[in-house]
Write a protein that binds this DNA or RNA. Structure first.
Length: 428
RNA sequence: GUGGGAAUAGCUCAACUGGCAGAGCACCGGACUGUGGCUCCGACGGUUGCGGGUUCGAUUCCCGUUUCCCACCCCA
């Protein structure tokens, strides 16, 4: 038997209703902030990701689905292509390619699948779904303003509240500009040198490859050492510090709670200044449901104009998971309003016409099987969760008055065709 | 990529030291031929993930493999 490949899965009803619930809430909320949707290809030139995400990151180094495309002629070597491991690079590429700044498009969101060749776990798949948004534009358009950061964070808080997710925590940090990072990295290396020998094996490796990641260490014995390491906050230059302060001031005023976490670092190379994560306790080790930050130099790194920006990505798989575990997932499934039960094949035309009329009144209609005996139709209607059953038999068609029974109350009436839709809508 | 656990009916799970593969729920039918939910009865349902080995005999023990889960790595 052929099965879905490792790390991929089918999303089945009724779970798909929950995904739709999430996505329509996202579209509603983002629209209120005047974001517009962008859809970029799910594969791109490999160079796009290695330049933006960073050659040294795990994503580029070992987690990408990359292949050599065929050229035009049999003998040609094609380009190296890669399934997108994240969507910010694609959005920025499109921004540059279509000169979106000239069209005033500076607030974009996306919803779609991404691909990373990781070891699968719960809430972590090789084809996974991200919801993200990006604010970017020329500096003259205010894209560097802390107001953009704060607005984006406030939008996310609104979204999580709207989804009924309680107990989220916003963790906030600033990773400064490249200059600050360089100075900080140097200080960090110096501080680590005398103590690294006492740390865990992972930290010893990190200290060499990517010292920032030492802050992710969860080994208890290492914590006192980590506590004493220099923090990025002390290395922010004046503009970065002021920017960070301003973001916080706005959040306090609009009433979005947050906690400062100067150990929060971002894995991708393109991040600058504001870095953030929303975490949720119920998710265990995979406790981050979304993360993001500012990437002021990304456009230029990809050969575009200066276009400071900030964005985030929500792990939709995990978001849905936390929704399933906390909220009432059942509630979002729309069940049939009415089950139309034709009694015998000769009733099919009349049943079909009635179903069509009812559906035109925005009712959810399940058209039953004409081979069912009435008892079985009732069972089928109940199982489908229909509110009403409408019986279409010879007597009803002759009289043009139909038996309509409320399956929840047991009340049954005879009702003429013209009043059917109104009656069912009223009882919905 | 590393380490550990698991895999038995559609779902949730049993099956002693190796001895006839089972239950509940679901599904289908009947009791009840134009009135559901409850109840009762019956039927259906299996390459025990896959491949090999040991054995008279393997769901059980061994090896390999695949997938999932957990912890790493890393990240959303």
């Amino acid at each position: 038997m052929i099965k879905a490949v490792r790390g991929t899965r089918d999303l089945l009803p009724p779970e798909t209703a929950l995904w739709n619930f999430v996505e329509s809430a996202v579209r509603d909320v983002f629209r209120a902030y005047n974001f517009q949707e962008i859809r970029t290809p799910i594969f791109e030139e490999t160079a796009l990701f290695s330049r933006s995400v960073g050659e040294e990151t795990d994503i580029v180094g070992k987690e990408m689905y990359t292949w050599q495309d065929r050229g035009r002629a049999e003998s040609d070597r094609g380009q190296s292509l890669t399934l997108r491991p994240e969507n910010t690079a694609g959005v920025v590429r499109a921004y540059i390619e279509h000169k979106l700044w000239d069209r005033g498009l500076n607030k974009l969101y996306y919803i779609g699948p991404q691909f990373r060749r990781e070891r699968p776990q719960k809430g972590r798949y090789r084809q996974f779904y991200q919801i993200g948004a990006e604010v970017l534009g020329p500096p003259s358009a205010g894209s560097e303003s802390p107001a953009r950061d704060a607005e984006l964070l406030e939008m996310l808080a609104t979204l999580l509240d709207r989804l009924g997710i309680t107990g989220w925590n916003l963790e906030l940090n600033s990773v400064g500009c490249p200059n600050d990072r360089a100075k900080f990295n140097e200080a960090l290396r110096k501080a680590l040198e005398p103590v690294v020998g006492k740390m865990c094996a992972d930290c010893q490796r990190r200290a060499l490859s990517n010292p920032l990641r030492v802050f992710d260490c969860k080994v208890p014995e290492d914590q006192p050492i980590i506590e004493n390491l220099p923090r990025i906050s002390r290395f922010l230059d004046e503009p970065c510090r002021a920017h960070f302060e301003a973001v916080q001031a706005i959040l306090r005023t609009v009433g979005v709670p947050f906690t400062l976490n100067d150990r929060l670092v971002r894995g991708l190379d393109y991040y600058t200044r504001t870095a953030f994560e929303f975490t949720h306790g119920a998710l265990g080790a995979q406790n981050a449901i979304l993360g993001g930050g500012r990437y002021d130099g990304l456009s230029e790194a990809l050969g575009g104009p200066a276009a400071p920006g900030i964005g985030f990505a929500i792990g939709e798989d995990r978001l849905v998971l936390s929704l399933q575990e906390s909220a009432s997932a059942e509630a979002v499934v729309r069940r049939p309003d009415v089950y139309v039960a034709p009694l015998g094949a000769r009733m099919n035309p009349d049943a079909a016409r009635l179903a069509r009329e009812l559906r035109r009144h925005d009712l959810v209609v399940e058209l039953g099987d004409e081979t069912f005996r009435l008892k079985k139709s009732f069972e089928a209607a109940t199982k489908a969760g229909a509110k009403y059953i409408l019986i279409v038999g010879e007597n009803e068609v002759k009289a043009d008055a139909f038996a309509l029974k409320n399956l929840e109350t047991g009340e049954q009436i005879s009702i003429v065709r013209s009043e059917l839709a109104g009656k069912i809508q009223a009882g919905r």
